[in-house]
Amino acid sequence: MNGRILVVDDDRDIRDLVAIKLESAGLEVETRADGSEALQAASDGEWSVIVLDVMMPGMSGIDVLRQIRDRGDRTPVILLTARGQEKDIEAGFAAGADHYVTKPFSPRALLARVTAALG
């Protein structure tokens, strides 16, 4: 499989688990730990898919997404939201998300989502 994936989460465990799973499928992965780094990376590079955590200190994932979309960037975005935060899902779609996955999640299911988003 081909594709460059940007994974953004402040939780190192999640970042590493997602990265290794996606890499095992042959994808190229870069990770970022907070919203402003993510924005920078999103504007610097060409990404096939962005996996974006909602709950981060500093800028939230929704804010990052909003700014990405405001720049006219239509890269597919998969949001990672916490269970019980259904409002994040609504807000996420309103901000232009393509999919969401609730935490705790199965890395395998996430890979399937990413694959689907790659088209």
Partner: peptide
Amino acid sequence: NNSRVQAGRIV
């Protein structure tokens, strides 16, 4: 005071 704040959160 003097801590770094970003988008209303302390970082």
